[in-house]
Each structure stands twice: as C-alpha cells, then as structure tokens.
Design a protein around this nucleic acid. Structure first.
Lengths: 325, 325
DNA sequence: GCTCAGCACTTAAGCGCATCAGTAACCTAC
DNA sequence: GTAGGTTACTGATGCGCTTAAGTGCTGAGC
C-alpha cells in the first residue's frame, strides 16, 4: 500500500548529498570540462550507493538525445550454445564501454525490429543476419544513430566455414564430397553460402563439385541419404551443422555404415554434443569470444562516428579434428 | 551530412495532419474518454504512415510514468530450441497486449539485471530462473512496477519433469532407477529439483531411491557411468536433459550396451536431435506455447494490479515415448 | 587596489511525449 | 431564449534528466 512510492530520482540524490541535480549528473557521467573536487564526488557517490539510485534510461536518453542501449537482433533459429557465448562476450565488451545490451528474437510475429528499437530507444542495432534495406532505413528513422549489421561480412564467413570443412576433407584424401542441407527453410540462406564455400574448395583442389542432399533430423531419412551418397561414390560429407551431422551419424549406423570408414562426416559450430557423439565429431568452430569483442568494438566505433568493418578474419573459423573424419 | 536530421516527432505528425500534438497522442493511444471523429483519426493515422512515425519510447515512458517494455531474463545456460519457442510465444502474446519484449542473457559479467532494467526503463521483468530477493528488491526500486518470477512455480514444475520421467519408467516395470546429473554447476539447482521429482515418484511406487551419478558430455565418462549403473542393478536412467541422454546413449554403445535392453534411457526437453538419436529418445516435453502465453497473461495481469500465479499445470509437461525406453 | 581567470558549483531550459484542464462550437430540453 | 450538456478539440504542464549559461568566490598578476 504505497501508491506514491516514487522511485528515487537524481533530485533525491542531490538532496542527500547537499548539491544540485546538475552536479549529480556531472559526477555520474564524468562530464568532461567539469571540475568536481574529490570530496564532493565522494559525497554524491555515497548518496547514490545509499539510495541504490539508478538514473532512468528514458529520462537520460530523452535529455541527452542518445541512449546507451544496444539492441541485438537474433534470428530465432540461430539460438544455440555458440550464439550464447557470442552474446555473452558481446555484452561484456559493450558493458566495458558503458553500453547496455538487450536482445530481440526476430522472426516471431509481433513487434518488428524498428518497433522494438523505438520502444527502447536503442542507439545502435546490431544484427547477426543481414538486414533488408527497408528495415535498416526504418531503424535509422526510429532513432538508431547507427545500424550495424554483419551484412558485408557474414557471407564470406559462412562461406569460409564451408571452405574449411572441405579443405580438411580434401587434405584427408577425399575427392568427392557430399553436403547435407538443413531442413528448415530459414536456414537456407546460410546453408547455401556454406555450400558455396565447399564448392569453392572443391573447384580449387580440382575435385568434383559437392553433391548436396536435403536432409531431415530423422534416422531413416538420414540412412537413405547416406546410402545415396555411397551409391554416388561420395566418401565424405560436410553437414550444415553439428546437429545435422550427429543425425547423419545415427542414420549411417542404421544403414550399417561407419564413420569415417564408409563415409567421413564433418560438422560445424562445435556444440557440446559434438565431442560426445559416436564417433566424436570433427567440426569447424569459431572464436566467438573474438567475434563478440570485435562486434562490440565496431559498435563503439560507429557511435563515435567511424564506419568500421569487421574484417573477415575476425570471425576466424578453425577446424577441430576428431574421430569422424 | 545532415547534422540536424531530426527524428520525426509527434509535432511533425500533428502539423501534417493539421491537429495538435495532444490529438495525435489521443489517436495513437486510443485514450479512453476522448471522442475523435473517424475523419480526424484517419488523417492522423495517414500522417503517421506517411512519415513512418514511431513514438519514442523514452519520451513516452517519461511522460506516462510507465513503459510498455517487458524484460525477460534468461540464464545463459538454458538457451536451447525449447527456450526459443517459449520466448517466441511469450513475445507474441505480449505484443497482442501492446507490450514489447526484449531479453537479457544473465550470468555474463557486465550489466546486472537491475542496471539493464533501469537502462531500458522496463515496466515488468520476467525471469525464467528464480531471482534472489536482493535483485527483486533492486528491480522494484529500479522502476519495474511489477517483478514477475516463476520462483514459486518453477520448482514444482522441474520436479514434475523428474516425476514424469520416473513414472514412465516405473510403469514400464523398472524398479531401480539411475539419474544422470549434468556437468555444469549452474544447472545444479534445476537438476536437484528434477531429481527430487524422480525420488518422489520412486518412493510413491515403493521402488528404491534413484542412484544419481555426475556425468560429463564425454563418451568414455558416460561409458563408465553406464557400467556403474549396471553393476548397481539399475535398469533405467533418467537423464537431466536430452543432451545428457544422447551422450549417455553414445557411452553405452562404447560400453557394448544397448538401450532399452541393457539400460532404458529417458531424456527431457525434447530437442530436435532427440528423435534422430539412436535409438530415438523417449523424453519429457513441455507445451512451451502454452507456457509463453500464460506467462504473458501473468505479466498483463500484474500490470493491471493483480497478483496472478502460473498454475503448475500451465507448464504441463508430458511424456513422449520413443524407442529408448 | 583592481582586474580577471579559474574553481565549484547552481539555475534554467528543454528533450518528446501524456495528460489535465480548459474552451469554442454546436446541440438539445423546456 | 438560455442553462446545461456534449463534441472535438487545444494549451499548458511536467515526467527526470542533460547541458549551456551563468554566479559568487578566491587568489594570482600587475
């Protein structure tokens, strides 16, 4: 029963510290060009602590014309342990720069990205997937001072993943590769790109182009696909990701085939189950920590007016060789 | 080079529609008690469309004293396909109520939940995991008019999951069960609770208490655990989740054991790989759609002053019987 | 002795919106 | 014909903060 239980405001802090609200603001923001004696600063900070005061984001961004909120848009299918690690590092790096990260799962009906952006008054929107131009425009109008997308870089990287898979297999002596496409339509764009990387590597090594097959997460279907590849004298398969690869391994077992003898299998993403697969799965991993950090750097740079780009190398995929190849 | 490229404001819309800013606000919010003729309403809406105007969240919530933003805190380890589906439905249901959802991955160093809450001025914070009291207090002070947590309900539900696993196995004739604990410390709390459910069911059926073993996502370790259970005449194992269960299946194969003959294995969560496991994994699934919807209802209700509770039934776990049991 | 720079602040304006308190115009009802 | 009500608005105010523009004070410089 406290209908008038007002939140603590900077005025409360000011009163407690015996200064004006402006001074509180200067202390809290380390405003350049303001000289605050150590003693005053301490008094303010102490009052802040005592009252557990946190400036209201809405008032802050309204007054300052900019917010410290970064919105990350994640395509709803990409959620996995990898993304989680990435988000973690991204958030941590942003926090170091005084920025706050929140994420939005795209794809669901409901609020559109620009709507969400406007609602929380984000100053930067980062996206894992390329954003279409309309959305990007809308975001700019919605007040995202900068929209950072991996548009330019995502494709080469995805391609790089496929390339790495293929190169590993080719180095192992395989000449005819298969590619296991994922079931879900929304993954298609990424899959096509990874496949392109595989094709590139094959062409470059003078090997035959890869034989891509649609697959489902279903043992029987995977068994059929495995047999089909065998018939076409494919000796190694790049799977879209570890999940597909693990299902393929199960399908092969059903078909009486073993990896890597009958068919070498290579995954991508290095999910926790990859090492507990039977046989343990060779895969391509990413340095997500690095990705998170450099994306954060890019955000910070864009906030200060720069127009930085993630270099493709910054996503740095690498091969983990286990028993399935 | 547009340093003064101001974002469109409600004043712009007002000008374009030939009305005052107040009228624009009334139209956009369907403010009760205001009578706006259809013609005026159309003019305003048309201007909004033309200018692609979106009210600034910060200004809105500052003026109104409340925002339409809901913040969901997700423990960083729980991210999986299940959570994704849940978030989707949650977000959609909230959108129907005019609320915007953003999520925060907890656990990472960086911004604390109250900090994030204050930064985006969320009006409700929902959490999947129970929140400790300090955090909950801080959230309230930070302006979350209502903090909704599953605190009260999560445990019974988690327990219900374990109970369901065990009941299924007991119905199949098993008398001595094993429990495969997850590796990660952060999952411990949930795991303990699920295990409690298993123990409950065993006690109730007059069976022996379950034999819980710590496990790692590693084939060799899983093989050892499987042999241990066999030695202790355990005939069926409840795994903490599908991931652990799939790894256990691989470990059993390594140990020359088959499921369900030598050891029946039951997962939880119904991840996509569960049906593609070898053998396909029996598991406990949740009606995530329903969970998302009822959590949204709870949020809406709490916003209008109620103090609703998710009923345990609303999480409604159910058994999917496949070949591993 | 007076000026002027710098220090340590304060005052006030205003960000974009919601909302309360009008108000002019029109319409009954008697 | 006018008090009283309704309709369709508008103007002004203030949410909590940032920030430009002071203000009173002390001390150095001439």
């Amino acid at each position: 029963m406290s209908p008038a239980a007002k939140r603590t405001t900077s005025a409360d802090v000011a009163r407690a510290a015996g200064v004006s609200a402006a001074t509180v603001s200067y202390v809290l923001n380390d405003t350049p060009g303001q000289s605050i004696p150590e003693d005053t600063r301490r008094r303010v900070l102490e009052a802040v602590r005592q009252l557990d005061y946190r400036p209201r984001g809405s008032a802050r961004s309204l007054a300052a014309g900019r917010s410290d909120v970064v919105l990350l848009s994640i395509p709803h299918l990409s959620i996995g342990p990898g993304i989680t690690r990435f988000v973690e590092h991204f958030a941590t790096s942003l926090a170091h720069a005084g920025l706050t990260l929140v994420t939005h799962l795209a794809g669901a009906p409901g609020r559109s990205l620009p709507d969400v952006c406007a609602a929380i008054d984000a100053s930067v929107v980062a996206s894992i997937e390329p954003l279409d131009d309309d959305t990007a425009q809308a975001l700019r109008r919605a007040g995202a001072d900068v929209v950072f997308t991996t548009e330019v870089e995502a494709h080469p990287t995805m391609r790089g993943t496929g390339r790495l898979q293929a190169e590993h297999l080719i180095a192992l002596g395989h000449r005819r590769l298969g590619y296991a496409m994922p079931e879900h339509q929304l993954l298609r764009k990424i899959a096509d790109d990874r496949l392109l990387g595989v094709a590139d590597a094959c062409a470059q090594a003078g090997a035959e182009p890869p034989l891509a097959l649609d697959t489902r997460l279903d043992t029987a279907a995977m068994a059929r696909a495995a047999r089909r590849w065998r018939r076409e004298s494919v000796t190694a398969v790049c799977a879209y990701n570890d999940e597909v690869a693990i299902a393929l391994l199960a399908g092969m077992r059903r078909a009486g085939l073993t990896a890597p003898g009958d068919l070498a299998v290579m995954g991508a993403d290095d999910i926790p189950l990859a090492q507990a697969a039977d046989p343990p799965l060779s895969t391509v991993a990413f340095d997500l920590e690095k990705v998170g950090r450099s994306l954060a750097e890019a955000v910070v740079a864009s906030l200060s007016g720069g127009r930085p780009r993630l270099t493709p190398a910054s996503l740095s995929p690498y091969v983990i060789h286990r028993a399935s190849t």
